[in-house]
Design a protein around this nucleic acid. Structure first.
Lengths: 209, 209
DNA sequence: CAAAATATGGAGGTCATCTCCACTTGTCAA
DNA sequence: TTGACAAGTGGAGATGACCTCCATATTTTG
């Protein structure tokens, strides 16, 4: 898997150029306003070459996303190794927001791709999710965090933060979400019986037909 | 504004047919896989007619979204009038999840449109956000909910829930997010000093260049 | 009922996407 | 080094979705 067939020298060079340009365009946020053909020109290769390396827009995005996620995962592991579990989780989540803030164009692009449901990003997402899952699991084992809400919920919240990145006051609101998640995760306050499974069997209680 | 010029009888009929079909296709989730021209056929009108009534895909979506949001807002007001503030908020949020669950195709479609940043949905979103803002404000006034995290954060979380609707175990995770948000919002536990503004000045603490 | 106003629909123009293949570049054995 | 085979290139052009335009049809009004 991830079969690494030795790439020819020029092919390697072109691929690199494509990726570099892609990262650039991503960060600028213009990924979807740009004709795909023009993108090839921009990177200094022919359309054919572009399409051979990355058959679709999504494939290209996936490639960029991969590095991004790898870096993030490294950071997660590093935090987990050097900090108490709860603090590691908190720091990681706060860091994610900071990172998105510093790379808004990229955040927006990725969010769009996710929502578009391309599914090509699923693999990369899984890696990121695994990292979050580990952080949460460690915090649960420490007894610092409740065990009745999974890491998936945290992922959803992060997803929401990324997807909404164009709101005015994004940064403050994003920090707010993290605060809510973190406080919400903290082991339950005075054990009052707010049961979150009470609506298990209700399908649509909204009154809308 | 929203100038309502009397529409000719057949025009009205066609418009209705278009909207009806749109709702149907939305719910089925196939809104983006369908050629826009074919959609006209499907609704039994010519392409020209479709484009006159709804100049773009987004315009059509906006129309459907509008009704949806109106219903939701009504419900919010109704809850606010009949329940204690905190309970009204909780019930509304839980209800949102139930509603999305019952209309997954629609939820997915809307999430996609939001992320696509069309902006056409901004108006409808604002209405929904206003409703949430009111619910939160009431709960804050009651002293049941913290005042240092705005309603925008709640919107982001909802956004994430909608956007991620294709995850396996969506329902459980969505309920989890709501639980976190609700517990996180609850007036602060023992006043321990977890300050959520501490990273105000940090731009990128993720260590990624 | 006739004329004026309003709406229809689908044929065809426009433009982004992607394919295909004649040609260039890199690799390797002798 | 050289020649020959493999691997890669790039851009012209086919494809097909989106949208416009206008001759025709329907509604409304005087």
């Amino acid at each position: 898997m991830t079969t690494d067939k030795p790439l020819r020298a020029d092919a390697q060079r072109n691929r690199e150029a494509l990726l570099a340009k892609a990262r650039e365009v991503f960060d600028a946020g213009g990924f979807f306003d740009l004709r795909f053909d023009d993108f090839a020109r921009l990177a200094g290769v022919g359309t054919g070459t572009l399409y051979r390396h990355f058959p679709t827009r999504e494939a290209l995005a996936e490639a960029v996303y991969h590095e991004e996620v790898a870096t993030l995962c490294d950071r997660a592991r590093q935090l987990q190794a050097t900090l108490p579990a709860e603090e590691a989780l908190a720091t990681f989540l706060r860091g994610m927001v900071g990172h998105m803030d510093a790379h808004q164009g990229l955040a927006r692009t990725l969010a769009t791709l996710m929502a578009t449901g391309s599914g090509a990003l699923a693999e990369g997402s899984r890696a990121l999710e695994q990292a979050v899952t580990d952080l949460v699991a460690a915090a649960v084992k420490d007894g610092a965090v409740r065990d009745d809400v999974g890491a998936g919920a945290v992922m959803m919240a992060l997803h929401g933060i990324g997807a909404a990145h164009d709101r005015t006051g994004w940064r403050a609101e994003a920090d707010g979400v993290i605060t809510l998640v973190l406080d919400g995760l903290r082991r339950s306050h005075s054990g009052d019986g707010q049961r979150e499974h009470e609506q298990e069997s209700v399908v649509d209680q909204s009154g809308v037909p």
